[in-house]
Nucleic acid binder design. Structure first.
Lengths: 242, 242
DNA sequence: GCATATTTGTCCGTATGTATA
DNA sequence: CTATACATACGGACAAATATG
């Protein structure tokens, strides 16, 4: 692992560790850095380096690793350590297959429609505002919130939790293909804004069957854009360390 | 925790720890004992007792606990230890809601039909034979294998893995209501045998829409039987320890 | 309510096995 | 093949929380 700029930022995150369960907070800090591209997919996370940078014990750090591995953001390789998850083409297809299953089923059984639909509406507005300003990573975050709200419609803790993990992995997929380039991120996220607006409108009107169709097309479109951007990023293999 | 008959059986399992990652193997041993009712839901698992019985270190045992908590079989309570998961009525409803979503979607997109359908057939035969002999716990195991095969039809690692966890939790639900009584277990599991046979026949014939309907009814029926048996088991609170 | 014993949470140091240079 | 680096597993220690009398 290269001792770069992120080491300073990790040290600055040490004050965030003051509240809550230690391992959980460490996991939160690392999760942010992973989804924001500080640690690109394929990066190996060194135990000792992170331990001293964060000022926690090995057991605590390993517990945080386990939490993130549970979310699919890290992979444990026996006797080799933990790595930021790299997604294959098959992974991306699988990811979106399961998202279509869960989110599609959730909007067809909208038990918690009244409670959750406003949240979806807020996410749509947030995405539109961020898109107008060209803040594409904020658009991505709002898109995540929107699709989480769709899954929450089922009123099922397990469906919501499973979707939370799938969405975290989806962000990983964007990290793999975007390389933080503005043009890439715009091309990937811009189409979602209008689609989510349509979806919210259809759901508000109770036109569930049409909403299901739009959702299916939206997710399939996002999958297609990811896969189209994928091959180019295979050549530049992700940065390793130490 | 009472030092009962299970202590001997745990000691006998020590040789199973010879292959694979230690914590993973410990988790496998404990998982079997939980799903087979050695440790009923609500039981507190004592670290020191299990550690000495299995002959592993505390850290390794705690790692195994984390793996099982990840599968939803154990729950961690701060400074109180780990307990075998107890499922509420809401949990059981949620469990079967998500199973209907995933298995239902899987049989509608039977990508891996040729590879997986034979396994489903074997599970049907095994269930029929076990039912003829009155081995209801074997019927339950075959039913689990059958529904796992249904989920595997999607050809999706994530759907298969999620279903694996849901099925483990479902077994927990049966543990909560059955109390190992033969009449109870028969009433719970017997209806599944013929239904699974029907399902397999319909899938083999490519009659997917009908299969989806039967699957929906089967899962809803199992859920209904579990919930009907649930209230009576609330009075006799689950056995605690020490 | 209080004091005691037990149990868990956290951390350290070390030995061993494995992968990599 | 040797050497180095690293993860795994073990045992021990102490503080904090809980359970027991």
């Amino acid at each position: 692992m290269p001792t770069g700029d992120w080491l300073r930022r990790l040290a600055a995150d040490r004050d965030r560790l003051d509240r809550g369960s230690t391992a959980q907070r460490v996991a939160d800090v690392l999760r942010d850095h992973i989804t924001e591209g500080t640690f690109p997919p394929g990066t190996r996370l060194n135990e000792e380096t992170l331990r001293s940078a964060l000022g926690v014990s090995r057991n605590t750090l390993r517990e945080a690793f386990r939490l993130l591995a549970h979310d699919g953001l890290l992979t444990h390789e026996l006797n080799r350590g933990v790595f930021v998850r790299t997604l294959s083409v098959a992974d991306i297809r699988d990811l979106y297959l399961m998202r279509r299953m869960l989110e599609g089923a959730a909007i067809r059984v909208p038990v918690a429609l009244d409670q959750v639909l406003p949240q979806a509406g807020s996410a749509v507005v947030a995405a539109e505002e961020a898109a107008a300003r060209g803040h594409w990573s904020d658009v991505a975050a709002a898109d995540v919130a929107f699709h989480q709200a769709l899954a929450d419609l089922a009123g099922s803790p397990r469906v919501s939790e499973a979707t939370r993990r799938l969405l975290a992995e989806s962000q990983l997929a964007f990290q793999m293909v975007s390389d933080q380039m503005v043009s890439d991120r715009r091309r990937l996220h811009e189409p979602c804004v209008a689609a989510n607006r349509d979806l919210h409108r259809l759901l508000s009107a109770g036109r569930i069957a049409e909403a299901a169709t739009v959702l299916e097309e939206t997710l399939t479109g996002a999958e297609r854009r990811l896969l189209a951007a994928y091959p180019s990023s295979l050549t530049k293999s992700s940065a390793q360390a130490h």
